[in-house]
Design a protein around this nucleic acid. Structure first.
Lengths: 161, 161
DNA sequence: TTAGATTAGTCTCACATGCAACTATATACG
DNA sequence: CGTATATAGTTGCATGTGAGACTAATCTAA
């Protein structure tokens, strides 16, 4: 008679933890700036990489479905938080970058989010935190979620759903 | 100039990892039995606790929104995988339990899911696995996701979306 | 007994998102 | 060249789900 205790089942626990963490963070950008998760991911990508990059790059970088990114980009354009630059060499794609307002939002938001992350992880001792980083990296690798920057893996469309 | 690397940001990594793990597991019940995540959670709860229990109990136990559980229960009833017993003492609630078919599904499914979990965690050394359990428990506790069985915490409605 | 509060469960609404078809452009190769 | 294939990005469609109103039943306390 095999049994399974949900509360000890890692997939369930990861789901629940991830949702709880998202909720804990979302107030910082949702309540404060009216930004949803996919939009946050676009901003995070553009803010971190100084150079403009395409929506396709954001898709790869964030492991988010391209239709979701497309809608997030549209929304951010409407909000004036990013700008779109035509690429004369390849007119299918556009280079995206943060606008002045987008950069200001980024600068205001990042410290808050890092603080939240710190708060959540403050439950861990320093050694545990290092272990956690190692463990996450190993599981990510075994699930093929890590991609060399120049040889991006096959696109994956996992969403926080 | 503060910056944030998404790929090193724990909330993002947890989201992505949790989604990838869900995807890796869902084939076992989705493809195989046409069961969705909320239905799986109901089945897991009923199968683990031998005694019948109410939808409200499942809500608390799985940290899932009551409307989601309600729909999952309806769907499982239609599929004949669970049964609903009226409670003459309190006619608002119903006791739920796995049907014969539901128990068979449970018995067939559990070993597969445990195998999948093992595969995913096989990237970790035994010591790391123990560390991981400890770390998860600590973060869960700090986010108030653990509930004493007789003093359930305030209901939380985190969903995998 | 009764009025107000509480609880279990259902249902409607709004909305986010994956999928897949689609458009427009670019590339590869005969 | 020109045709076939691949790619960037958008959009329509279907669906899953959280919020919260709602119903019915129970509990509490005057």
């Amino acid at each position: 008679m095999t049994k399974l205790d949900l509360l000890k089942f890692v997939p369930f626990r990861m789901n629940r933890l991830s949702a709880a963490i998202s909720t804990a963070l979302s107030s910082e950008y949702r309540d404060r700036y009216g930004i949803e998760v996919p939009e946050w991911r676009v901003i995070a990508t553009l803010g971190f990489r100084e150079e403009p990059c395409t929506a396709q790059f954001v898709v790869q970088h964030t492991s988010t479905h391209k239709s979701t990114i497309s809608r997030a980009v549209t929304s951010l354009l409407e909000k004036g938080l990013i700008e779109r630059i035509e690429n004369p060499v390849d007119r299918r794609e556009y280079a995206l970058q943060l606008s002045r307002d987008g950069k200001a939002l980024y600068q205001g938001l990042i410290p808050r989010l890092l603080n939240r992350e710190r708060e959540i992880l403050s439950a861990l001792a320093p050694a545990e935190l290092r272990q956690f980083e190692t463990i996450l990296a190993k599981i990510e690798k075994s699930l093929d979620l890590v991609q060399a920057d120049d040889h991006p893996a096959a696109p994956r469309d996992y969403e926080q759903a």
